[in-house]
Design a protein around this nucleic acid. Sequence first.
DNA 1: AAATATTTGCAACAATGTTTCTTTTTTTAT
DNA 2: ATAAAAAAAGAAACATTGTTGCAAATATTT
Lengths: 139, 139
Amino acid sequence: MDSIVQILKQNNLSVTEGRRKILSLFLNSNGALAHADIEKNTHSHFDRVTVYRTLQSFVDKGIIHTIPTSDNSIKYALCKDECGEGHHHDHHVHLVCTRCGNTFCLDNVVTPTVKLPRDYTIQQVEVVVKGICKACNNQ
Amino acid sequence: MDSIVQILKQNNLSVTEGRRKILSLFLNSNGALAHADIEKNTHSHFDRVTVYRTLQSFVDKGIIHTIPTSDNSIKYALCKDECGEGHHHDHHVHLVCTRCGNTFCLDNVVTPTVKLPRDYTIQQVEVVVKGICKACNNQ
DNA sequence: AAATATTTGCAACAATGTTTCTTTTTTTAT
DNA sequence: ATAAAAAAAGAAACATTGTTGCAAATATTT
Ligand SMILES: [Mn+2]
Ligand SMILES: [Mn+2]
Ligand SMILES: [Zn+2]
Ligand SMILES: [Zn+2]
């Protein structure tokens, strides 16, 4: 069976053209995608609302995760860790390349531990590095 | 001289009612502010465009900095480090309280060092912690 | 194949952000 | 203090982004 269909079924999502296509975009992209990237790559074949809903359901199911940015543009990327419905466990660092503008999950770079004063409780640590990506550095 | 006026003059910004009021909001707030918070606190006394432009000029001058979020909502907070026109040097951790929803600069918590593979270049590291803030923990 | 459940697209709306231009305010020079 | 120059604010129009309710279409279950 198609691995895309498999992922959708495993997550109790009914298999529709939009979900198949959008999931395949993530599987075939090495960087993170914004809503606009998806609209563009699908040539607006799907309604904007459908794209929003699809992204949201993928996040809910733990198939993709969001990446924080400083400029009001959510980026989404495939979860490669043990994420599932209702719980994300993405403990890796993200890189925003200031040259090509792409955002990447550095799956092998774990988030450093942060020590806060006693009064605070840590639930999750997000690390976003601005810098130059591999591809841009090698040219 | 009023310290607010002083800050504006030091940064070569002409002193206007809007800038004075918005800067004082930041000086009197212990957390970060979103555009909407400012609109609300000024009772929409200033045009929305003016608020956008004021925030942008403050960021440009290094008076305030933006804080990345995962939900498409830019937060702004006073720069307490050595920031200036064209260069921000905010090396502290940010905390988003999942109970009260506020965002705080933890000025005393320096961002941990991150080690990336040789192919990458680091320019800036942003750390956002989700958790419970001091005030919420002590009640 | 029919019944049921789910998803989609559409429309209308709300919120957020940008651009251009005129008026007003602030700053500088006299 | 006044006039000239510079800068900022406000208004309007528009663009982009995100949300909600509902009927039609599609997918899943029986
Ligand atoms: Mn990631
Ligand atoms: Mn800060
Ligand atoms: Zn790059
Ligand atoms: Zn709190």
